[in-house]
């Protein structure tokens, strides 16, 4: 940037407002925000959690290093972005996933979703979610085998139980559905994280703490998580009261599954989401609508991953149509 020093007056071209935030400082804040969920995950899933997280982070950083070396680019592993991607991917995986699958998913996140598009800042889709989507498409059985916290017994996720019960009800098996629904965890367990699910998604309180920290630090606009969670809440409230399940139903939908993890940490990715305020509200609304649609009517019990990826697709479109008008025109 050109600047001329005229005594005590510095003349330079715009931009004039500068920040001390760098990529690595922002990524460090994200890592700090993920720490509560990490601790809860280590407490409930023990070694299963630790091994998946370590392999995922190491594979992500390593594949970024190798790819950038192989293509003669500047190696950017010190900005922590690969580590964040690896950690976020690990948070979306089941605790007992074979470690070689974790490594492949992590490498796919970095290479297929990020580096091929030109590295950090050029990717269209959230890398961690692409890694998860590739793993789900490749090894559907392993990616949907869940274990319970502490004792590690194979079990179903709360949303999986609901989906299964709905299928049984549709077939007319009311007792079977009732037995299944009796296995649902309490809302308190879901709030602190004592439920089956992906590594980092189980504890609502830890994710909310992390999310609030990011909003407080200014890295995340409240509009995306706000409208995302709000849309899911409003839609499930309507359904909850229409089906006579009351206020328990919307709260259950918010606390279980990957909604909070997705809303605070993935739908707010700086690269793949709209930059305008209005655009962010549209993005959150779309994510919420798609999530509820997939959860209630789709083939999968959980729809957070695909709803965010689908909205990532139309982010450039949202940005184009919500661009602020030039003053005076």
């Amino acid at each position: 940037m050109m600047s001329t020093n005229l005594g005590n007056l510095v003349v330079s071209s715009s931009p004039h407002i500068k920040t001390t935030t760098t990529i690595s400082s922002a990524m460090r804040d994200v890592l700090i925000a993920l720490t509560p969920a990490l601790i809860v995950s280590l407490y409930y899933f023990r070694w299963a959690s630790l091994s998946v997280i370590l392999v995922s982070v190491i594979a992500a950083v390593l594949s970024e290093y190798i790819f950038q070396k192989a293509t003669n680019q500047e190696v950017t592993i010190n900005d922590y972005s690969a580590a964040v991607t690896g950690l976020l991917l690990a948070f979306t995986l089941p605790p007992n996933l074979p470690l070689w699958m974790v490594a492949i998913g992590s490498a796919a996140s970095i290479i297929v979703a990020k580096q091929i598009f030109g590295g950090l800042g050029n990717n269209i889709f959230n890398p961690a979610l692409i890694g998860r989507a590739i793993l789900v498409a490749s090894w559907p059985a392993a990616m949907t085998t869940w274990i319970s916290p502490i004792d590690g017994v194979t079990t179903a996720t709360p949303l999986g139980i609901i989906k299964e019960a709905n299928t049984l009800q549709a077939l007319g098996d009311m007792t079977g559905a009732g037995n299944l629904l009796a296995q649902l965890p309490t809302l308190t367990d879901a709030f602190i994280g004592n439920i089956a699910g992906s590594l980092g998604e189980t504890s609502a309180i830890a994710l909310i703490l992390g999310g609030l920290y990011l909003i407080y630090k200014g890295h995340v606009d409240w509009r995306i998580p706000g409208t995302y969670i709000g849309t899911v809440f409003v839609l499930t409230t309507i359904i909850g009261f229409a089906t006579g399940q009351g206020v328990w139903y919307p709260v259950f939908h918010i606390l279980t599954g990957g909604l909070l993890l997705g809303a605070f940490f993935m739908a707010t990715d700086w690269v793949t989401t709209p930059i305008t305020k209005k655009g962010r509200i549209i993005f959150g609304l779309g994510c919420g609508l798609l999530t509820v649609l997939i959860r209630l009517k789709g083939g999968y019990p959980e729809g957070v991953c695909y709803s965010i990826l689908l909205m990532n697709c139309i982010t450039p479109l949202i940005d184009r149509y919500t661009k602020a008008k030039v003053f005076g025109r």
Partner: peptide, 11 residues
């Protein structure tokens, strides 16, 4: 051997 099903799917 657990094949990566995604390879025989369109993606």
């Amino acid at each position: 051997f657990q094949p990566a099903l995604i390879m025989i799917l369109p993606p």
